[in-house]
Nucleic acid binder design. Structure first.
Lengths: 250, 250
DNA sequence: CGCTAGTTTGATCCGGGTCAATGCTGGTGG
DNA sequence: CCACCAGCATTGACCCGGATCAAACTAGCG
């Protein structure tokens, strides 16, 4: 975690005019991440009804989606790119509490205000719905509501899991767990094999698992040299699964 | 975190015949922690109806309330003592994910199985309800249901908060935050002032905030010597609030 | 081609982990 | 009533992993 980064992130991100593009949804039925999203619970009829209340939003890197404390008046389904979910601590450090991947649903806190902030880590697109429209739609489509509930359970579970990762574990254990958990999440989206995309920066990874950027970098390098993974542009390729799993258990 | 402790904890805790006592609820209307519990949402009539489906359970120190992975067929409201909520990690370490204080509601995961374990840190009493009875009752009492929802929100918020505490923070910052958060929770129960009960062991505190028992002890001692707190039996007394708050922010 | 943001790598230092000895306290039985 | 014991807390000595600071390197991108 580093103070400078979080400050920079904020000052470089204009809070006004956040959304780069905002146009009608083209065709949900052809949407490639639909199977992995809450929309998978909708049949053709419901889908076109749903399409009518949504808009496509796109975010340039570092653009803010919403801020902690703001009224939550819109909800999102990420369709491409990567969203960082984070809290700014009193001392200026940034704790990333999660990553929003394509298919992930964001922005519906239990209360009326967001409890964490969200910004785009890379160029990102999402479907945007007004909270009221969305809730009304959900209440008229029971299967969809249940699917939303499932999504919430999954998020809670991920958060609990993350709590156990953040404790006093060794750097290579944290990084190994991180790689495996990202792999598991990509698997649900595109069934990928040993290749794991990591679109976020080293700093983001550090702020997520609780390590300094230098330590993150060194640990990746070490795992690469040990032949456990191979570092590739914007990701890694897993070479030795058993070794990686063993490290993750430490 | 220490491996031996978690192992001991398990082996010393018989899984059979866990509940020491199990008798009818005496008189909910006179229950001293009712204002702080979900039962506060019930009027006299509903309360006696509620009384009829509950039983009082008591747990000796180290007795298990429920285990991660088990079917969740009973729910609890803690009435006295302290419950530890924890996960056992693959390497044998124990991560305490929360403490159940008097008034806290436990044991209703979103799915049908518990996602963490719970045991008594000290002699503890709780009201026990069969899950089905409880859910049926709740569905017939809307105010109660809403109150339950609030409790869930609070728990989720605490978990997120805890995530930000576990990161790479200094030992005195972690301990200071811990003391202040325990104080805030006791305040809701008995409005106590600068005196903060800490019924759990040093090991429990360490497994919660992510510190070694030795470091926990040393940090308490240091804060005491610095005049920020005074260590008293089973707790601390806060002597210098501003200093403690300042430490917590680091 | 050169600028900028991000990444890697090196050198150094310190906080907290580890191991182990000692101290304290409350419960038990002679 | 006191001696003993078990479990927990405290304290000390030592060491190591990761933070910090800083420099060199690399990859996009205009």
């Amino acid at each position: 975690m580093s103070m400078p980064t979080s400050i920079e992130t904020l000052s470089r991100s204009p809070t006004a005019n956040r959304v780069r593009g905002l146009k009608l949804l083209a065709n949900c039925s052809r949407c490639s991440i639909r199977p992995a999203s809450v929309c998978s619970a909708l049949d053709a009829g419901a889908l076109s009804e749903f399409e009518a209340i949504g808009r496509e939003a796109s975010f340039a890197p570092r653009m803010i989606v919403f801020m902690e404390g703001e009224r939550a008046d819109a909800v999102y389904t990420v369709t491409s790119g990567l969203v960082r979910l984070f809290r700014l601590l009193p001392n200026g450090q940034r704790q990333i509490v999660g990553f929003g991947l394509p298919g992930d649903f964001l922005g519906l806190p239990r209360g009326e205000r967001h409890v964490y902030s969200a910004d785009a880590a890379v160029g990102t697109t999402a479907c945007r719905f007004h909270r009221q429209d969305f809730i009304m739609f959900a209440e008229n489509h029971t299967r969809f509501l249940r699917r939303l509930h499932d999504a919430a359970v999954k998020a809670l579970d991920l958060a609990q899991e993350q709590m156990t990762q953040l404790g006093p574990r060794r750097a290579d254990a944290k990084i190994a767990s991180f790689i495996l958990s990202m792999r598991a999440r990509w698997m649900e989206i595109n069934g990928a094999g040993e290749s794991v995309p990591l679109p976020m920066s080293r700093q983001d990874i550090g702020d997520y698992v609780g390590l300094n950027i230098a330590t993150v970098s060194r640990t990746f390098t070490r795992l690469d040299r040990q032949g456990v993974i191979r570092i590739v542009p914007k990701g890694v390729r897993i070479l030795n699964f058993p070794a990686l799993r063993q490290l993750a258990e430490q």
